[in-house]
Amino acid sequence: MNIFRLAGDVSHLVAIIILFLKIWKSKSCAGISGKSQVLFALVFTSRYLDLFTVFISAYNTIMKLVFLVLSYATVYLIYMRFRGSYDSENDSFRVEFLLVPVTGLAFLENYAFTPLEILWTFSIFLEAVAIMPQLFMITKTGEAESITTHYLFFLGLYRALYLANWVWRYHTEGFFDQIAVVSGVVQTIFYCDFFYLYVTRVLRGSGKMSLP
């Protein structure tokens, strides 16, 4: 555990809690892509099957369980409890365009051709693109509430901090995970455009982020 890893995990947790509390407190999931949240629940489910096979640490187990529970709770809020506020009209990204290539790639490029390893790789690839329905939705409606942009900022920051963690681990432990690093770089690139808008419009401007 290094400072980048810890900061990345905290950032990830903050993002997920921000989103959950936003929906819970406002009793509305307006502007939130349910599809992205289902994809994230799928990411955690397919990656954390190792909870059954290997024990790392109490921290590791607890964080994995918290991410799993919060992701499913968020999906529940969007599709069940506050489904009246769900904007399915604008959440129109075709997720099969992500799931089909990601599944195919996981079968082609993995560390071992075993169910758990293929699912682990699938989760890493899927995470890299899971935010696309949300970004698509913001582009379509042309705006995002500031709290939604804070969520996206922390979610993007988390993977960027993991990149620093991987550089650190490579130099201190000789640890290099090609699949995670390449996917992590791709994932972070997806957020770069958003980071720019976040700094120029949300932090310097007022409230909502509206696109030109």
Partner: peptide, 10 residues
């Protein structure tokens, strides 16, 4: 690689 370190990351 079957590196158990991978499972340490979230």
């Amino acid at each position: 690689s079957q590196d158990p370190l991978r499972h340490d990351e979230l």
